[in-house]
Every structure is written in C-alpha cells, then in structure tokens.
Design a protein around this nucleic acid. Structure first.
Lengths: 412, 412
DNA sequence: GCAAATAATTCAATCGCTGAACAAATACCT
DNA sequence: AGGTATTTGTTCAGCGATTGAATTATTTGC
C-alpha cells in the first residue's frame, strides 16, 4: 500500500494540460508581481505557445484576469500582467467555537471578501441549532459573494476538537460536543456552496489545523514547515510539513496539549499525568496569575492577562514564565523530533507572545541538540483570532489553485 | 516558497511516458503475484496498448522480465507474468558504525544479493581510513554484483550521527566523528557505482532514517506512517509519514533521544536535562541492570541484557521496565502529536522488545488521547542488525522504481 | 519615421495515448 | 478431434497537447 510517490492514476493526454494548468496558475499565485505570459514561460520551462494556450483556459474559466500593463523599462511590446481573478471561485470558511460563530469568504488571491462574527455562548446550544445558525450566516455570505461576482466552490468548518475523516466530531470538550455527525445534521439544509468536481462540499477539521493552514498561506508566505500552536483552554497544534498539513494516520495529529512534560505531575482530564495543558493551558495560566476564572468571560481571560503583564503584575509575569517554560519543554521535544525551524504561537497565545517567547526560546536553546547550528524562530501568529475560519476558506481556494482542472470542467 | 503540491516542473510530452513508466513499474513492484499486461491495464486505467508500449520500454531497459506463464483457470490465451528484473540496476548500501562496517547490494525486487560485514572497532580509526576500507569492500561488492548481471546505480551510506544535505557528517558522537565531509574524502577514490541520471552517486544519511526506510520497504510492506526507533547508545528515530521519510527542515529530524521526559532530571551530554537517552539509552539500561559497561563489548551489551531478562534476573527486569516506561512517555507524546498507529523498535531495542513493549504500551494507553478509538501497535523490527545498510541500498532501488525514466535514458 | 526589442499568436510537426480491429493461444463443449 | 468461446497481446488510424519557428503586434530609442 505504499508505492512511495508513484503517481496516483494513469497519465492520459488530458493530464498534461491539467498539470500545466496547475503549474502556471501556481506561478501566478506565488508571484509577487503580475507575471506576463513570457515570464511564465521562462519560469516554468514551457514554451510561450503553450503558456498562451494554458492562460487562455484560465482566463475563460475566471481563474485569472489581465491586469493593466505594469510599467517596464526598455523597448518592446508591453507585457500584459496576469493576476488571480477577483471574480470567480471563492472559498467559504466556517468556525464554531465556545463563544462565537464565524463565517467568511476568501477569494483566489487570499483576500477576505466577506466576514461575519456572531458572538454567543455556544456551550448551552445544541449542535444542530448551532449549525443551523451557521447555515443562516453562510446563506447571507453566499448572497454577498454572488453580489461581488464570486461563486462559492466549497466550504470548510473549523471545530475545536477531534474530527473524523467523515466529518464526525468525535469530541469537542470545551464545546460539549460528542459524536456530532456534521454532514448528517446539515443534510436537511440547502447546500452551502456550489458543487465543483474535485472540491469537497464540506470539510470539517480541527481548528488548530486550519489555523495553521491560514498561517501557511498568509502574506508574506511563511516557511514550508512549521509548528502552529493554538493556546486556548486546550492546546492544539497544526503541523505543516513541506507546505502540507500533516493530519496523522486518522486525522488526529496535533494533540500537543497532552504531551507529557512532568510525567509524574498533575493529573489531566485526559487520564494521563503531567500533560502540557495542565501547565500552559489557559486555566493554568489564569490560576497561576491569581485570577478567578469563573469571574472572567472566556474570551477576555487572555486580554486581562496581557493587561496585567503589561502593568508588571508579578503574579501574572510569574504565571506566564512558568507556562512558557512548560511550553518550551514540549516545543523543544517537538523540534528535536521533527527538526522544524519555526514555531508560531497562535490563538490565545498570540497576545501573550511577548512574555511566552523568552522562556520558550530559553528551553529550546538548552534542550535542542541542533540549536547551535540552526536557530529556531518563535513568533506570534500574524493572523487575528479568525485565523481558523480564514484558514478554512483559504484551504478551499488553495485546492482550486493546486488543481484547477476540476473547476474548469465543472459545467462540461 | 510554498506552491503547496504544485507539480515540480513543466509537463512536456515525455512526462506522460515518464509518469506511466513509474505507474506501471510501481504496480509490478507492489503486486504480490506477477501481473500480466492486461492486469496492469485494468489496475492502472491505461489501455492495453499503452501498457504494452510501456512494458516494452521496461523490458528493453532490464527493469522487468517476463516470468513463466502463471497457471490460471478458465479459457483464453495464457498471460505472461511480469516481475522485477533480477538483472539490471541494483543499489549499494553502506554503513559505518562503532564496531562494524557493512556493505550490501540490493536488487530491484529488494533481495539482498551481496553482503559483507567487517567487524572492527572503528572508534580509533580516522574517518578517511574507515572510508577507505569501505571503498575497498564496495569494490568487491561491485565486482560480485557484475558477476550476477547487476549494475550498481547509486549508493547510500548510513552513519550514526547528524548528517547534512551535502553529506557532511556534523557530529557522530559515538564514532568520534565531527564535521567529516564524506564526499570530499571519497573524491580521491574510484567511483563506487555507475552514474545514472536522477540517482545521486552517494547519499549520506542518518542510520536511524535509513533503518526506517528498510522497515518501510520490507516484506510484507509495513504501514505508510510509523515511527522507527533505533535504540543504541544514543536513541534515534526515523519518521515515515505517508510512505516517505520525513527528514525535517535541515535533515536532522528524529532526535527522539533528547526529548525531555523528566525536565528537571538527570543532566545530559547534550546540555539539556532529563532527556530520554538518560533513561532509556543503552548505558542507562546496562547501569540499571547492575552491569559494568566497560566490561562488555558494545555489541554484546543488549545480548547480555536479553539473557539476564530471559533468566528472570530482577535487576535486569527492573531496568528494562524503567527504560520502557521512559520510552513510553516519549512515544506517547509523539503519538499524541503525530497520530501514528505503529511504532517499531529497532536496533538494540529489537531483541529487548519482549520486555520493553508492555511498559511502552501501558504509557500509551494512559497518555494518548485517542488510544481508546485507535489502538497503537508496538512491535520489534523485522530486519536484523543490518537494517540500516539494507535500507540504504533499498532507498537507491526505490528511487529507480519511483522514477525509472532516469535509468532508461542513461545511455541516450 | 525607422530600426530594434520584446510580447504574444499561428501553424506544421511530433510524441504518446486511445479505441477498435486483429492475431495468438488456450480451455471448454460436442 | 474439431469448433467455438475466451482472454491476451499487438497493430494502426485518430486525436490532443506540446514544440519550435515563423509571424504579427506594440512599444522605445535614434
């Protein structure tokens, strides 16, 4: 079952065009300046004739459009720049979290073209009702997208929990969800998006995974391999290796919160002992800072911590240092194992990064075998709290960019 | 820098044939019975005409050969079975370790066609001299291969240490090597193998990585994602994800030996504290069992431990249990992070597996969040102590199977 | 206003896959 | 024993996609 990089299927005549469509479109997407057909020809190694034919297909399919001629020095016929279309396919990103619902639409270029955040405590809400609200918001988003000339080609939903390949949410502890079959609950509602071959109608994935994807495709493009840690009540990690999210054998990778950092330490609700979550989770930091969590709305806990730390509160500083140290121990292990050079602190960790990074870096320096030769960067996420929803929508459009043939053949 | 799965280069006319050569050859390699051209056509989705043309190329290039017609029930013209050629390209595998040198030749089918083990204490030998001995053994291997109709198409060298992309051994502590530029030291010697386009003349890699590759390609084929742990004096891991070795950003992945298992515990020679190696490395087990390591040749320490454990020696059993527990803590963290379902104990751990597996499994059961839904298998390596050399040679032939066009175009 | 330069398109040639017809070789049936 | 059904493998015209050279298009510099 492991042909080791052998091509997936038969290479027929049409595969050539599919590959070159993806190649050319990928170059247009990756370029920092609208390239001309001639630029693309030299960049890809194809002839200008082929590039022209490929671009014609892409133009007809509303995947790219011609930009105004970029000013260029020297003689010669001016080039016509090609950019990703701002009309055409777009991705729908959804997120259910403890205290908000988010819906957003991202176009091919990665621009957020629509965004709704609906604040509400979702814990007492039944999953079916929460999803119904989401469907309503998604309907509005779709209408707004249509007004802007965008077609929703697929959707992705971020959930703070363990998700199955089939979209079954096995366990989302902080949301109180257990064995929630999302596709099934959605089957009574109108479809969220149009149907496009090669693009799944709805992908359900872990919030941390999708946030990592958002980071991967943010501008400027991040590194191809990194660890993205979302610190909320639980701690999740998205692992991006060689430009692709690594989901694990069953799609449950990234449970860094249950990495043992003190094997004989505090018992954890997972049944283990000394898990990272017990030392660097939101509750642990809040308690360490002497705050009473019950008095704080969940979404303001980290803001309050940042305030206190900013003001020099010793208990808060101490709590953040301890959490950073525990996090650093776990991260050092991961870096030793995977040889990553970048760690991104996201979610609730992002605003606390100024206080978390130093102890994390200290542990890395002390514990990573190769730290002397290859420095490890630890930095906060560049995306805001909606990273997961944006990453979800982005994963849809990245799929179209990576394999545009499906979109182009949608009506045929 | 992250085109996210975009094809590497331009898809020209010839790419089609290259892809289909790889597709068909991969099927032949993966089949458990010699397939006919018709079988391949249905399996790949290509037409029989195309398969015939592709197979003709493969036959001409000595990559496959026709087997005697396999007996088949029913009417019809008998099929001609296709098997990987036992003459043609082969891979050269080399290993330098503390107390032996190994050279072996593996053919396309994965059969070991030549093997030499040269026992000697390599620690007092200068790297250049050790490599010179290896070159001599490789020359004999090449001659033997030629007598068997095999052409060496590339070589891979396993080293117990951190290796650079360029073949620079940064650090091999137990061997006493530091910044050894292997390709440079070899440049004065005659070439180890023939030159084949697309196959590097010599790959230098970590022993644990290559042992994991050996496991991946062993018969019967293992899972596509697993963790292979080589327990020697140091502890190294090879991480195989989706059928490919994950080498990390700089090629230094797998340093599981320095995963912190007791962050405030015993100091480690890496500068950290409480690294796994201090609790589950060979020295720790030997000391825990009350043995004096200096009195044992390095290569007999594990054999002696296994003897004692077999005999029920309490100190040995206790030492193995403690080591297994520490190993289990580390493995549980890795499984939580990567969601792997198989862990292979190799190297010095293989003979000790009967005593190590139970505590490892116990820690996994207690600490892995998803253990209830997805059992994790922990088993000893099926390959012997020469796993790394065999894996090294195998990596060469797998590369040819994965991209046969290079071999076929070698003379053109 | 003309030549040089660069961009993009057109077109015959070529390569490799497809699909159908055909040839080859065996088992089953009468 | 002979004929038919069945399956394997090959041959060949057709076609889609890329190539490379020639051609057209559009601008700068002299």
């Amino acid at each position: 079952m492991s042909p080791t990089h052998a091509p997936a299927g038969a290479a027929r005549q049409g595969s050539l065009r599919e590959l070159n469509l993806a190649l050319v479109l990928g170059r247009i997407a990756a370029a920092d300046r609208p390239p001309s057909r001639a630029d693309l020809a030299t960049a890809t190694g194809l002839t200008r004739a082929t590039v022209s034919a490929v671009v014609e297909d892409l133009l007809a399919g509303q995947l790219v459009s011609e930009a105004d001629p970029a000013p260029r020095a020297g003689a010669g016929r001016p080039a016509r720049g090609l950019v990703l279309a701002d009309q055409g396919p777009a991705g729908l990103g959804l997120e259910v979290n403890v205290d908000y619902l988010t819906v957003c639409v991202v176009d091919l270029a990665g621009q957020v073209r629509h965004r709704t955040v609906h604040r509400a405590d979702l814990r007492p809400v039944a999953p079916a009702d929460a999803l119904a609200r989401l469907v309503h918001l998604a309907g509005e988003a779709r209408a707004d997208a249509a007004r802007q000339g965008l077609t929703l080609a697929g959707a992705a939903l971020a959930v703070p929990g363990l998700v199955d390949d089939a979209g079954l949410v096995r366990l989302a502890p902080n949301l109180g969800w257990r064995d929630v079959a999302v596709p099934e609950l959605l089957s009574g509602h109108p479809p969220l998006t149009d149907q496009v071959p090669g693009v799944p109608a709805l992908v359900v994935d872990n919030e941390a995974n999708l946030a990592a994807l958002g980071e991967l495709h943010s501008r400027p493009p991040g590194p191809a391999s990194f660890l993205h840690i979302s610190g909320e009540v639980g701690i999740g990690a998205g692992i991006v290796l060689d430009g692709a999210l690594f989901r694990g054998v069953r799609g449950w990778s990234g449970e860094i919160g249950h990495l043992p950092v003190h094997p004989e330490g505090r018992p954890c609700r997972c049944g283990g002992q000394g898990c990272l979550e017990q030392y660097a989770g939101q509750e642990a930091i809040v308690a360490g800072a002497g705050l009473v969590r019950a008095e704080l709305p969940a979404d303001t806990a980290t803001a309050r911590l940042a305030e206190l730390a900013e003001a020099g509160d010793p208990a808060a500083l101490r709590a953040l240092h301890d959490a950073g140290t525990a996090l650093g121990v776990a991260v050092a292990g991961v870096v030793n194992l995977l040889d990553l050079d970048t760690v991104v602190l996201g979610g609730g960790y992002a605003p606390l990064a100024p206080w978390l990074c130093p102890p994390v870096l200290a542990e890395i320096a002390a514990r990573v075998l190769t730290a002397a030769w290859s420095p490890v960067t630890v930095r906060p996420s560049t995306l805001g709290p909606e990273a997961a929803a944006v990453g979800a929508a982005g994963s849809v459009v990245r799929r179209i960019v990576a394999r545009p043939a499906g979109w182009l053949n949608r009506s045929a």
